[in-house]
């Protein structure tokens, strides 16, 4: 285990076996993550169903344009990440670097939008446990915002982890420790995680901003 140079660990016989194991491991991890978020979506679905009027009123309080822009930013970051993986596989170091930096920038932009949203909503009293009084009469509207803050918060934390990982790749590449295309699998793993987090948002956006509008 101690030797760093050969890419194959002792429990593997060939590099392709290790690559397949890494890939499968990441997909299994994502399956687990999908169930984690699935439970959040399930709760949202139940409350959308049993309190349609309150959910409608609550959804109207959200800033749709910011939500849409944020979604566009994340969708774009998925594409830059995919381009980074592609370039890494072909050993194009500069292209990989540019695409990775682009991904970090887009990720940070999304987080900035989200934090701005949260402050905005807090100012309007939409964070029920604290701040100005909650503006809506329906009690179940609070339920919506409780779930809103937990689900967007959980997503933002996942995205922050993704940003750190991609930033790590950038640093590794600048310092020459990310030899490409040999260690392309590292870029690929981070990319899969990143795109999974984007998919979570692809569902959060309509669930929070659209369906009960």
């Amino acid at each position: 285990m101690s030797d760093a140079l050969p890419a194959v660990h002792e429990q593997y016989q060939v590099a392709t076996q290790q690559l397949a194991a890494d890939r499968l491991g990441l997909w299994v991890f994502l399956a687990s993550e999908a169930m984690l978020f699935g439970a959040v979506f399930f709760s949202l679905a139940v409350y959308h169903y049993i309190h349609p009027a309150a959910m409608h009123a609550a959804t109207d309080q959200l800033d749709l344009s910011m939500g849409a822009v944020g979604t566009a930013v994340l969708l774009s970051s998925s594409t830059t990440m995919a381009l980074a993986v592609k370039a890494a596989g072909e050993g194009r170091r500069w292209e990989t670097l540019v695409a990775l930096i682009g991904t970090v920038v887009l990720g940070l932009a999304f987080e900035a939008i989200k934090v701005h949203d949260w402050f905005d909503e807090f100012g309007k009293g939409l964070y029920p446990p604290a701040g100005p009084p909650f503006p809506l009469p329906q009690p179940a509207a609070r339920l919506f915002f409780h779930l809103y803050f937990v689900s967007t918060g959980l997503h933002a934390v996942h995205l922050a982890v993704g940003i750190l990982l991609v930033a790590g790749l950038v640093i590794m590449q600048v310092s020459g420790r990310l030899t490409l295309p040999e260690r392309m699998v590292t870029v690929e793993m981070v990319g899969l995680y990143w795109q999974f987090v984007d998919i979570v948002w692809i569902f959060l956006y309509p669930t929070l901003y659209l369906v009960s509008r």
Partner: peptide
């Protein structure tokens, strides 16, 4: 909205991932 979300997620999984 949900159908579009499924389509988008499918595209990301199928092509980007």
């Amino acid at each position: 909205n949900l159908i579009f979300a499924v389509a988008s997620a499918g595209a990301v999984v199928w092509f980007d991932m």
